[in-house]
């Protein structure tokens, strides 16, 4: 199979998954006892039966479940996620406004993870079982073990409050592309990226170690190539492939992390909106963000697979 056909096939394969994602999202809110109207009415004993029925009609909650699902999904497909129940505001507008903030945070977290983890992984693999390796392994283990909300609080405490280096307030008026955004991004970015950095570092170290034991490395060394060239030109490239396989998982981790980290840093992104919506029982917002998250992770998986396929000449497309 050619690479193009692989890409096509792989791309088509996400369709049933996207369908499944939408079914799970919808099902969790509509098959559980007490739909949004029931819950709303429970809060307000004065709503009449007629009004309840009218609300159901308006929010697409009348009729059999599959019909409700079709209504909902056909609206979603044209970008209509309904309105906030309490304010009547368009949910899609809310999602689009918050999305860039979360993407900026996620990208920064990713960048931080890569910048820290890849050199650290190389260093650990090259100096295997020496002190530096032990320390970095320990740090990596700590990195995957430390609760991110806890890490965020400690970072705020040290760098914003004791040292006064970073702002405490989240950005509100700054444009996302302005240079001062960097100051706002650093602490939450580090918090969100730490677990990923630790995972990448561990994978880098393992796969580098394996690569370094392979014959072609011995051969290259025997040829008299400088160690630097051997590592950077040959070993690194092959090791990075294993990082790509990790990328999709880590994207999911960063998305989940954004929920917690945005709350800790009061970051005006989708994660904080998600928690607010859960607290306010804004079902439409929760559903929209859940669906968005699912689609985003699926796409990340797809991209990772394609990159992986393109990078690794040994892969069999099947």
């Amino acid at each position: 199979m050619s690479l193009q056909r692989f890409i096509l096939k792989r791309t088509l394969s996400i369709i049933p998954i996207m369908f499944g994602v939408s079914v799970i999202t919808f099902g969790m809110f509509h098959l559980t006892p007490g739909d949004p109207v029931t819950r709303l009415v429970a809060l307000n004993p004065d709503v009449t039966a007629a009004e309840e029925a009218a609300l159901r009609q308006r929010w697409g909650l009348s009729g059999p479940v599959w019909e409700q699902y079709l209504d909902w999904i056909s609206n979603v497909l044209v970008g209509d996620f309904g309105q906030e129940l309490q304010t009547g505001r368009e949910v899609s507008a809310i999602v689009w406004r918050r999305l860039p903030e979360t993407i900026a945070l996620g990208l920064f977290g990713w960048a931080f993870a890569l910048v820290i983890a890849i050199p650290a992984g190389i260093y650990a693999a090259v100096n295997k079982n020496q002190l530096g390796d032990t320390i970095s392994r320990f740090l990596a283990l700590s990195g995957i073990s430390i609760p991110n909300f806890w890490l965020g609080l400690i970072l705020i405490l040290i760098f914003s409050l004791y040292l006064g280096l970073f702002p405490v307030l989240a950005p509100s008026r700054q444009s996302l592309l302005s240079p001062e955004m960097l100051w706002y991004l650093i602490l939450p970015g580090i918090t969100i990226g730490t677990a990923s950095a630790a995972s990448i570092m561990r994978v880098m170290r393992t796969s580098m170690t394996e690569e370094l034991n392979k014959e072609y490395v011995t051969a290259a060394r025997a040829k008299g190539l400088p160690e630097r060239t051997v590592i950077l030109k040959h070993v690194l490239r092959n090791s990075l492939i294993s990082v790509v396989t990790l990328a999709a998982t880590l994207t999911a981790s960063i998305v989940a992390g954004s929920v917690v980290v945005e709350v800790v840093f009061n970051w005006p992104g989708l994660g904080r909106e998600f928690i607010n919506a859960i607290n306010q029982r804004e079902i439409n917002v929760v559903m929209a963000i859940t669906l968005f998250t699912g689609f985003f992770v699926i796409l990340a998986n797809l991209v990772a697979d394609i990159v992986y396929a393109a990078l690794d000449p040994r892969i069999r497309y099947d």
Partner: peptide, 14 residues
């Protein structure tokens, strides 16, 4: 695969 599309924490939150 479908379940993997959702981060575990998000599902737990919901």
């Amino acid at each position: 695969d479908t379940i993997f599309a959702f981060p575990g924490l998000i599902l737990a939150l919901i």
